[in-house]
Nucleic acid binder design. Structure first.
Lengths: 127, 127
DNA sequence: CTGGTAAATAGGAATATTACTATTTAAAAC
DNA sequence: GTTTTAAATAGTAATATTCCTATTTACCAG
């Protein structure tokens, strides 16, 4: 597909995220990946997480304490809400104005490529 | 105010951003700041940029190639649109659904604290 | 003005992330 | 199956960002 190769490194990163059942940091993915491919470099992990996110297979979630990654299980478009204290993450099936983005970009002569959106809050446990 | 101190480091970071008239990276700010305060550490730059952004005096703009910072000259709420090729940044006076965010957060028992939004596109020069 | 105190700093160390390059490899073409 | 080639990798180096701790300092109260 699209000139991308299916490499063992790539496959196993997806597997690891799938098995994990939770969000992992790049470091955690690297540690687990090493058990199967001892020579894998951290650069490969980052490179693939970028690529996988670009094609929609994974999500990159930027928390205050760092980035975490998850396998995209829910393929429908959604965003994230997270607690600024405990960093609990919730997927919200909500995108404020998907229709309007292209129009906004168009006002400045831009062709829309993507958008980022996230909500930060304080969860019920942390109040 | 609010227990924050007005330190020379802090003041000069704001001055530098004000004089620059453009967005700067943390490294650039550090280099310029050193000319006035030779012993200043890069950590101080980051720490203050975080704080200044938290209180609204500066904006943190995350581009694909890294983060840049700008002084908040336009105090009205707005977001950014940038070109994925040349990384030109445009301020857009548009926030898709400010009203709805609290309600969305509320659905999950969260008290809204903040939100992030940005548009990525391809500008007229890069098409 | 002087002392007390929380906030901020410098400096060094630890992490996180990206860049570079020679080599390897998946996949397509033959 | 073999060749070809662009994509991907490992390894290393460079940057970017954050953390830790002892020391300093802005600012408040007396």
């Amino acid at each position: 597909m699209k000139g991308y190769k299916i490499t063992p490194q790539r496959q196993k990163i997806v597997e690891i995220l799938g098995r994990a059942g939770c969000r992992l940091t790049a470091r955690e993915i690297h540690q687990r990946l090493r058990k199967e491919l001892p020579a894998v470099s951290i650069d490969t992990v980052y490179r693939n997480l970028h690529l996988l996110s670009a094609v929609g297979l994974t999500h990159h979630i930027q928390l205050a304490s760092g980035a975490v990654y998850e396998l995209t299980t829910d393929l429908s478009h959604h965003h994230h809400l997270y607690c600024v204290d405990c960093e609990k993450v919730v997927c919200i099936k909500y995108c404020p104005d998907l229709q309007g983005y292209s129009e906004q970009a168009g006002r400045y002569g831009f062709e829309l490529v993507g958008h980022t959106f996230a909500l930060q809050g304080r969860c019920s446990d942390c109040r």
